[in-house]
Design a protein around this nucleic acid. Structure first.
Lengths: 236, 236
DNA sequence: GGTCGTCAAGAGCAGTGCTCTCATTTTCTC
DNA sequence: GAGAAAATGAGAGCACTGCTCTTGACGACC
């Protein structure tokens, strides 16, 4: 019967969820390198070998956590964006930036897993690509919608990007339709600036130097918003 | 006798150097997490416990590698800077950027060790602070000298940084004397943008999207140079 | 009712960081 | 120069890791 089969599959799905939950807890305390299948099994009252029925290897468990992480940050960014007035493009950009930073500060080890050095020997499988780009859709949409609304006025200070970059810009336009190569390049500057700032704060490069980190972050993200060409004030 | 004492100390120093060299080779192939004291000992024809006479723990060996890495990147940056005409501030900035990127691409695991996620359980000791800031001196000097030469003209696009950041700016001015809070903030934007860009390229965030990475990097760094206010052309 | 797939359990392998003891060698001191 | 002291290398051992293999039990399906 199909119902009984799903009964078994349901307990299996439940166990998988429980394993990833416990693994995430371990990740939060010990970091990616300290994630131990045996420890997770102990917490579940299982013998270590039984875990391998659900995750064939440690890397597979890591992959599951990575996908969850990308989705979590994607969701946080989506919520932050939808909480703003649609025509407040700079406000939306700042909200997204703060969402990324707050999530990173709340889940430092998960952020490190997603955006820090790759775990040695671990090769990210293709399953992670989709969730990894989830938040970039929001990011690109803000810039794209500002462009469509005629509210994107990049200051005249950068030279035009070289011709050779136009094919790459075309790829980026999949999440940022309609904008020029120049805006794409500026968008990447802001994008890498955002994550550079968060990673520096998280990985300790600001230690003993920067104390008002939230204020500096906000100011710098505002500066990057203006670099892209987002308007200083919402509305007309 | 003093000479005989140095005899023993000399072989000790030689062994320490050999250990770090082999460890660096392992680091280059297996990454920080895969660095094994036993494997290093095997390569040296030693028994594993003997290594502990020279490095009390794996973390101490990592610390030595980190210090070496910071010094290596600092030296690379210094060489890149001194290869430029002193009044070509934008050229010096670009040279430094390329030096950072090239070193990172040549030593990906070492870059990850320095600027990626912290190794789990590893706490950077104070010995690393000095070497860690070595390259920032070069970085700050470029901006500072451009300012003194009256060739720093930041485009009017960012709001003034909030008052609360002035104490942090004061700290940064230790390596960037004379410049305003606004320039300090812009300098941090460019600084984090540089490392964000390099880390994204190195950690695979550009996979399947950006192909002309050197060109994009050069263009974006030029864009950041103009954000700081570095002049478009050298000389007057 | 019999068969087959799924599962938990346990033993075991090869590897890790690290500690301890013991013998040897080198250095320092009287 | 003889003896004490320090430094060094070797080996065994502990507790831990990821992972594999085998065994026996349970549940689902024909």
């Amino acid at each position: 019967m199909n119902a009984s089969r799903t009964a078994r599959e349901r307990v299996r799905a439940e166990l998988i969820r429980e394993i990833t939950d416990i693994a995430r807890r371990h990740l939060a305390t010990d970091g990616a390198g300290g994630l131990s299948l045996r420890a997770v099994a102990r917490d579940m009252g299982m013998v270590s070998s039984a875990i391998y029925r659900y995750f064939p290897s440690r890397d597979d468990l890591l992959t599951a956590l990575i996908i969850d992480g990308y989705n979590a940050i994607g969701e946080a960014v989506e919520i932050a964006d939808t909480g703003c007035a649609r025509d407040d493009f700079t406000g939306r950009w700042l909200a997204v930036c703060h969402a990324v930073r707050t999530w990173a500060l709340d889940h430092p080890h998960e952020h490190a897993l997603l955006y820090g050095s790759p775990v040695p020997g671990y090769q990210a499988p293709e399953d992670t690509i989709g969730p990894a780009t989830r938040y970039t859709v929001v990011y690109g949409r803000i810039i794209s919608e500002a462009h469509v609304a005629g509210r994107l006025t990049p200051p005249d200070m950068c030279p035009a990007p070289p011709e050779v970059l136009s094919s790459d810009a075309e790829a980026v336009r999949q999440v940022m339709p309609g904008v020029s190569d120049d805006v794409v390049a500026r968008g990447i500057v802001a994008w890498t600036g955002l994550f550079g700032m968060v990673s520096f704060e998280l990985f300790g490069q600001f230690n003993n130097v920067i104390t008002h980190r939230r204020e500096l972050f906000e100011h710098n993200m505002l500066c990057l918003a203006h670099l892209i060409g987002l308007p200083p004030t919402p509305g007309a």
